[in-house]
Amino acid sequence: MKNRQATSNDYETIINLWDRSVTKTHDFLSLKDKEDIKKEIPMYFPHLDVRLWFEVNELIGFSGTNNQHLEMLFLEPGEIGKGYGKKIIQQLIIDFNIRSVDVNKDNENAKMFYLKNGFTIISEEPTDSSGRHYPILHLELKN
Rank of each mutant, 00 (worst) to 15 (best):
K111A: 09
I98Y: 04
V101G: 01
K116F: 04
N104V: 02
Y114D: 01
K87E: 15
I94V: 15
A110G: 01
N104H: 02
N107Y: 02
S100M: 11
L92R: 06
D106G: 09
L115M: 07
K86Y: 13
I98W: 01
N117S: 03
G83I: 12
M112D: 04
D102S: 14
E108G: 00
G81C: 15
F96C: 13
I88S: 14
Y114N: 02
M112W: 00
N117C: 01
D95L: 13
S100R: 04
I89Q: 08
E108K: 02
I89N: 09
F96Q: 11
G81W: 07
K87Q: 11
N97S: 11
I94M: 07
I89K: 06
K105H: 02
Q91L: 08
N109H: 09
D95E: 12
N107I: 05
D95W: 09
L92F: 14
I98V: 11
D106W: 00
Y114E: 00
Q91M: 08
E108A: 08
I89F: 07
K105E: 04
I93D: 06
F96N: 10
N109I: 07
N107G: 04
I98T: 06
Q90H: 11
R99H: 15
K86V: 13
S100H: 10
K111Y: 05
I93S: 08
I89Y: 11
N109M: 11
Y84G: 15
N97Q: 09
E108Q: 05
K105Q: 04
F96D: 07
D95Q: 12
G85Y: 07
I88H: 08
N109D: 05
Q90N: 13
A110F: 00
K82Y: 14
N104G: 01
N109K: 07
Y84I: 11
